[in-house]
Design a binder for these strands. Structure first.
Lengths: 338, 338
DNA sequence: CGGCGTTGTGGGACCGGTTCCATAATTATA
DNA sequence: TATAATTATGGAACCGGTCCCACAACGCCG
């Protein structure tokens, strides 16, 4: 078994208190004893037990992070951002991947509670039955601050860092219209999710503002997945009258759209122009020049961790919602080449 | 502050021991008392402190996982596999992303040690100065089993689950030759890493076995990144005599290669055929039909976690190295259409 | 009906740290 | 040089659980 503080004390012929003082350099310790203790620590390769310390301190130094899918670059990037700040500030992360499964989310919440996390960052999956909400409320009631990162729900009662999906969709739509498209459509995400809904609204408002006629059949109701997007796009492309450009609500859906086009031998942007949401790094790297709405996901992670830390330091803060405005990256796929 | 076992004991008018027995259903507890205790637990929303339990138990129930980059699907998938098994078996994961930084790896190792992890899964970054190796040895000496997942190093002294890069490259090369290519090249990863080296060997041996002449200038020394791959490929494509097919050592490098081709207006596989390593899900989804060597990364994660658990149960096991043979997924990009 | 095994419960030590308090040793001050 | 202030160290309680052991209550058997 690993060496304990007692072993060190004995070997250095001091008390545990003294060793503890050396470890945290608190209180008075004679230089001579300090070096002696440090020597013993070195020699025995002693590393203090974070567990025991946490118990005594009542501070776990741990932040819980819940995401729907680590595999998705969208979330992986947020995690990167969170990690960076956590590292700097000396917090440990307990990361949970819920696989978009509400039940797993419940279990995770329970587990994190047992781990005595000091704060929680969560990108929530759709809250069936609102059990999550209860849990989050319980957390806050027990002085565990919660920060929401984007995600499917938005409870005003919690701090949150959000992406302005409305604005992103709005900007993209305007860009398409400005590029000269007279008929523009949208491929939406699952409308039960808040972001998808907001993007749709942004799209519609932009259309209205520009006085462009919006056809009901040009609103393709997808589900964030590539499969559905593929079918919807294909069907749409076979109509005689159809939009010349599309705003596409997620990177996965862009892929589905492209497959449909590739099967029909159609080219971007000649046969169908588009602007997507999220990065499409892979495609741009191979020179496909996909225009996108860049959501600044890493920044979402950083800001939310920072926010959490601030609240940890001062529980009385007003709840705050930071909303990040996405930037448009136009790379060519939005062009109107008719 | 959260309720403690003492609070429960008092409220239920029993001793802490009894509450503990209910919690772990161990020992004797009268049915009547049990329900009473459970009721109190429910009412006070009590959740036992994993920290205190760990201290007492001397069991953290935690496994450390170190990867170079969560953002890379290659590692993210391994994590998925690890997570699945860990969940089933009731282990918590402490995940560390080292950003390919050796120093961070050192710090992480130290931190995990303080957390009293019971075992370690590591995809190691190149071990400059071998400090990592020391650390890993120290772990094992202190009864913390270590399992290596693929990665840049391979120390026979530790358990490990590896991908057979040699075989993968070998199979891919044979496939290219069988497809009718007379001149085949390779885009290697950083040769200081074991996998890159093995892939190169697999390639060379396959060439020799088939009696295909291998030109030195057809071995393009890359570094896993897309940028270098782009330049190397472009240069190569401008030569009058050049290979008609390439084995490409990583997904990132395939992207660089494609950019080069796209800029030169060249087509796959007419102007240059290829087989890549790792998945290229994104590209295949849009109908690009990229042939690849599928490395079964999720399985690597699962198997290594399982291995770790077995060793946790029995420290005396012989060290074992599982080597997974990759499968070839031919989708068309390897064809010889001349 | 006394002794014995089973069932049920409480007391207290322990896990490995931190921290408060008392006391000892040293130095400064009057 | 006696006394106060400062520096240095140890003792012991505590954090919130687990678990061993002692003991009480109960039923059963001879």
């Amino acid at each position: 078994m690993p060496a304990t503080i007692k072993d060190i004390a004995k070997a250095a012929k001091v008390s545990r208190s003294t060793v503890s003082r050396v470890l945290n350099d608190s209180g008075y310790v004679k230089e001579e004893t300090r070096t002696r203790v440090l020597a013993v620590i070195e020699e025995l390769n002693y590393s203090p037990s974070a567990i025991a310390r946490s118990l005594s301190n009542k501070r776990s130094n741990t932040i819980g992070v819940i995401v729907p899918d680590i595999n998705n670059p969208f979330f992986a990037e947020m995690i990167k951002g969170v990690t960076r700040v956590a590292d700097e500030e000396g917090y440990r992360l307990l990361l949970v991947d819920t696989d978009e499964d509400n039940e797993k989310e419940q279990l995770a919440l329970q587990a994190l509670q047992e781990q005595r996390i000091e704060g929680l960052l969560i990108v929530s999956t759709p809250a069936k039955g609102k059990r999550s909400l209860e849990h989050l409320r319980w957390m806050r009631a027990h002085h565990i601050p919660v920060v929401l990162l984007d995600g499917h729900i938005k409870y005003d009662e919690f701090d949150g860092v959000f992406i302005d999906h409305y604005q992103g969709a709005h900007d993209a739509t305007i860009a398409l219209i400005k590029a000269g498209h007279k008929r523009v459509g949208i491929l939406t995400g699952k409308l039960s999710s808040r972001p998808a809904m907001e993007r749709l609204r942004g799209f519609q408002d932009a259309m209205a503002e520009c006085g462009v006629v919006s056809y009901d059949e040009d609103i393709l109701f997808g589900d964030y997945g590539h499969e559905k997007a593929y079918h919807l796009t294909k069907e749409m492309l076979l109509r005689e009258k159809r939009p010349s450009a599309l705003f596409v609500s997620s990177n996965q859906m862009v892929l589905g759209m492209m497959r449909a086009m590739s099967e029909l031998g159609m080219k971007i942007p000649q046969d169908l122009a588009f602007i997507g949401f999220d990065q499409l790094e892979t495609l741009n790297l191979i020179g496909m020049n996909c225009s996108t709405v860049d959501a600044h996901t890493v920044e979402v992670g950083e800001l939310s961790m920072k926010r959490l830390i601030r609240r940890l330091e001062n529980e009385k803060l007003e709840t705050a919602h930071t909303v990040l405005r996405p930037d448009l990256s136009l790379r060519g796929s939005e062009a109107n080449l008719k």
